[in-house]
Each structure stands twice: as C-alpha cells, then as structure tokens.
Nucleic acid binder design. Sequence first.
DNA 1: GAGTTTTACCGAATATCATTCGGGGGAAGT
DNA 2: ACTTCCCCCGAATGATATTCGGTAAAACTC
Lengths: 152, 152
Amino acid sequence: MALDEIDRRILRILQKDGRMTNVELARLVNLSPAATLERVRKLEHSGVIRNYMARLDPETVNLGLLVFVQVTLDRTSADIFDSFAKAVRAMPQVSECYMVAGGFDYLVKARVRDMNAYRAFLGKTLTRLPGVRQTHTYTVMEEVKADLELPI
Amino acid sequence: MALDEIDRRILRILQKDGRMTNVELARLVNLSPAATLERVRKLEHSGVIRNYMARLDPETVNLGLLVFVQVTLDRTSADIFDSFAKAVRAMPQVSECYMVAGGFDYLVKARVRDMNAYRAFLGKTLTRLPGVRQTHTYTVMEEVKADLELPI
DNA sequence: GAGTTTTACCGAATATCATTCGGGGGAAGT
DNA sequence: ACTTCCCCCGAATGATATTCGGTAAAACTC
C-alpha cells in the first residue's frame, strides 16, 4: 500500500494518541471527518495499523524488573527450535523473543516483579526447557529510551 | 494504587483493544458505562495506563530489519554516559536503549529499512558517538514473540 | 480528446457514544 | 446509631462515529 503525506501524518498522530477522536484527527490533517475516517479504515484493513493498545506502566503492575537473556540451544535436533519457540510463546513473563544471528541463538526479553521472581523464572522455567544449553542474563539498570513509535 | 479484579480485567481488555468503546467495555466487565468510565479515568490519571497508541506493522512502513546492538563505552569520563544517552534518544532508528549490567554497557534496539541502511546507521551515526569503544550487532532473523501486552 | 471509470473528497443525516449529574446503598469509621 | 466515603446506577445531553448521496478531478480507454 502506498502512503502519502496525509497518511503518514495520520500514522504519526495515532501512534502518539491512539484514542484521538476522528473529528480532532480530521482537524489536524485538514480533511473532513468522513474522508479522514475512510483513510484510517483503509490503513487498518491494509494492515499498516495492526491494532490499538493501552500501554501500561510496568512498575504499577508489579513488573519492575526487565531482563534480557541470551539463550543458546543444542543443535542436535531440528525441532528443538520449534519446541523452544512454542514454549516461549506460552510464557507470560516473556514479552519478546527473537532468533538472532551472531553468536547465540535466541534473545529473550522478560518482565518480572523482582530479582527473586527472575531467579525462579530462570531456574524453574527457562533452563528446564529441552535443548537449552546455556543462558546469559543482562539485567536492565536504566531505561534510556523505550519508544514504541516507529519513525514515519 | 490498588487494583481489584475488575481493574485488571479492564487493563487486559484495553491492552488488546485500546479503542474499544466504553459501552462495550462496560458490558464485558458487567458494570454501567458511567462506573466503567470512572475506573478507566482513574487508571489513566494514576499512571497505570500511560497512553494509548496505534501499533504499526514495521514491514509496511519500510522498517523491515530489526537489530540489537551491544555498545561498550570508554569509562574515562562520567558524562560520556549522559551524552551517549542523549544522542541515542535523538536517533529515530533507535526504538529502545537500556543500560545493562553484565558484560557490556548499553543494549540498543534499532529498526531500519535493510542491511544497507543499518550499515550506514552503524558507521555514520552510532560508532561516531564520543566514547563508543566497541559494538556487537545481532541481526534478528525471526520474530518468535513480540507481545507488548503486560501479563496482569 | 471525448467518454468512461476510478478515486478522493465533502456536507448532511442519523445512530451510537462519551460524559455529566443527582441520587441510592452499603462498608468503614466515629 | 450516625456520619463519611466509596462505588455504583439511570437518565439527560452534548459530542462523536458512521453512512449516504453527490461532486470534481485524475487516470484510464478508445
């Protein structure tokens, strides 16, 4: 789908305030509400806008500790990767997990309440998965930037 | 702020669909629209809900390559950390940046169009920052999980 | 280039929604 | 027992989303 400047402006605005009313959005992009709504619907149906979400503060919901874990798997069997991926998707503590090139196999981003909770998660859940050979934990000490908006 | 079960249900729902109407949300949590709205406003003002955002598909906006970069700084001067943090916050390619314990100094998550764009970003922007001693790039090959919702 | 189709837009009408307000009722506190 | 506070409700109203017919310009066809 081809995006013109008005589309990009809409996307920039909705990334910052996903609940802005359509009439206010229309004012900001100098279109009628009807035309604006039509553009937004098109962006939604074409998949440019995946969804809308409320972003919560991790601290206030008892998820104050953020960690990254490098995970290396045994390469003995092909479906070990699949079963690892499946298991990780089912873990609520894991917010993101990527297969990466360049030294280890998976990079896992996890949110837990505190260091105790992380120790339990690592020992009782993550390292118990079949095929996990080695892990290395990086504890986040400071959030320098956490910008979920994409630069359009 | 203390959250009861209804609050948590509201948060779970709004994380999945940040644009749900208040009347539908009220139906789902078995409250009147007025009471539901009051709860949502309270969650917003207390900071549990930080904001609402439209989540875009990176591919469709030409940001198909996701990379993680480990960055090590010279520890010669204290304000090198500050200037690095400041510079990183101003880079649109950097979506997240954390100071981490455990072997290197910063973990940077960046989105770019392709490998060429990444090479340019690394060579012309990131490694040119004062104090950057060493970088190590991990290219994401597969997105196993990318769940921005917090487990409530 | 005349005709045709497509695309994007508008304004008005209507259905739906957000928001406010007065008040009820139960729990906690005095 | 009384007061206070908290959470809830229903009704009213003002704002909004959404639909629809119509217009004009661009793109496409012959």
